[in-house]
Design a binder for these strands. Structure first.
Length: 406
DNA sequence: GGTCGAGTTTATTAATAACG
DNA sequence: CGTTATTAATAAACTCGACC
């Protein structure tokens, strides 16, 4: 079976479930309202929410109700926090499908050096930390009786965590116990996750569910990932939950062999495409300012291939080297990424600042500006901002400015 | 009671090294 | 060769302790 480039683009957008989770429908639930307010402009079709409050932090949009957001997610919306694509708020139904990942931590090389060092320097440290959480309840690492901070320039050991060294053995140990599923994140104090015993955070009914083995868990994640992508290469499916490509390929083969997924060759792709039965190439009616963390944008090569759109996080680029700006939000109109805006909320001045605005080549500038103006007005109103100011930076500024005035 | 500043979190990028 | 691990650089907003 073959798919045209147009079909692939529509499938990719439809699979993301914009119609299910557009901000305009955010009043479907309190969580969604909060997420919309802090800048999670789209809730993932499979309910894997990359930490919305980091969107808030980075976006400089909206307030920063970190703790209330976590409480909502964990207590009211039936979600938990774990390593999905990244640190993610994940629908509770996926808990059993992630336990293989928890079970696997003990032998992960990332922890090896840390565990070896702790074993010699402080035998029984894992049990010590666990016991302290058990006794004292909800704790951030700095609230540990001994957070075991280490000097910053101490480079005699390398990264010991999933991302990198935290500079404190207490923190690393909490993260390790969390990765193993023995502890769970139950809330936050500012940026700091607060940990508690898993059985005090994850509902007993969920913990009692039979644990899926690695193959079954992976198969479920692959199912969900493929559904959220519509059609994707094995590499893209793997990236969705950050699984290994080898495991992903094995699970994809199994799902194809039982007929749950089908293989296809989309126009211009060099790798085989895996198509989910729910994929739909129906026409797309979407106008959405996307967070740069949006799951539609996770895989850069995919975005380039499908949309011809080069997305990168200039948050992490030194200021002098930025092309578009610090926090740039791509604009999805119909089934194409047609522009981008660099936004900042000026809360004191009650004004949404558009510090740069850009239209992709070959787009109808005035049409894009009109739709974008509507989205920005809506965004400003969620954020309780009265005005929108468009600076002159970018090839789209004057068109956008006149569209907003209208 | 108010101000200051240190501490804390996150993900992406690209280059490099190492693995099987 | 394709994949996987390691590393440093990057910015934001909030908390909390120290200090006056």
């Amino acid at each position: 079976m073959d798919l045209s480039a147009d079909e692939v683009r529509r499938i990719a957008v439809n699979a993301q479930g914009f119609d299910r989770a557009r901000p305009a429908q955010a009043n479907r639930g309190h969580l969604r309202r909060v997420l919309a307010r802090v800048g999670a402009f789209q809730i993932d079709a499979v309910n894997v929410l990359v930490r919305a409050h980091y969107l808030a932090a980075f976006s400089r949009l909206g307030p920063y109700p970190v703790d209330s957001l976590d409480r909502l997610a964990f207590r009211e919306a039936g979600a938990f926090e774990y390593w999905g694509h990244a640190a993610s708020i994940i629908d509770m139904s996926l808990y059993p499908a992630l336990r293989w990942r928890m079970a696997r931590q003990e032998t992960r090389p990332q922890w090896g050096r840390f565990l070896n060092r702790v074993q010699t320097e402080r035998p029984g440290y894992a049990e010590e930390v666990y016991a302290e959480v058990a006794e004292r309840g909800l704790l951030t690492f700095s609230q540990l009786l001994d957070p075991a901070r280490r000097p910053k320039d101490n480079s005699c050991y390398a990264a010991a965590t999933i991302l990198w060294d935290r500079g404190s053995d207490g923190k690393t140990m909490l993260e390790y116990l969390y990765a193993q599923g023995k502890l769970a994140i139950a809330g936050r104090s500012g940026f700091n996750p607060a940990y508690d015993l898993a059985e005090r955070v994850i509902p007993a009914t969920v913990l009692a569910q039979p644990e899926l083995n690695a193959a079954d868990g992976q198969r479920e994640l692959v199912r969900r990932a493929t559904a959220a992508l519509g059609v994707a290469t094995a590499k893209e499916v793997a990236d969705y939950f950050r699984m290994s490509v080898a495991d992903t390929k094995a699970r994809l083969r199994e799902l194809v062999s039982v007929g749950e997924l089908s293989e296809c060759s989309p126009e211009g792709w060099t790798s085989v495409g895996y198509l989910h039965p729910s994929a739909s190439a129906k026409p797309v009616q979407v106008a959405a300012v996307l967070s740069p963390f949006d799951s539609l944008l996770w895989e850069r090569a995919r975005v380039q291939q499908i949309f011809g759109f080069r997305h990168s996080f200039e948050i992490y680029v030194p200021e002098a080297k930025r092309v578009y700006g610090y926090f740039v939000l791509p604009f999805l109109l119909g089934d194409r990424l047609q522009g981008r805006v660099d936004l900042k909320a000026d809360r004191k001045g009650r004004c949404l600042l558009v510090r740069g605005s850009f239209a992709e080549p070959g787009t109808d500038s005035s049409q894009v500006a009109l739709a974008l103006a509507g989205e920005l007005r809506s965004l400003a109103s969620w954020l309780d901002l009265d005005d929108i100011t468009v600076s002159s930076r970018g090839n789209h500024a004057s068109a956008l400015r006149s569209a907003i005035r209208r």
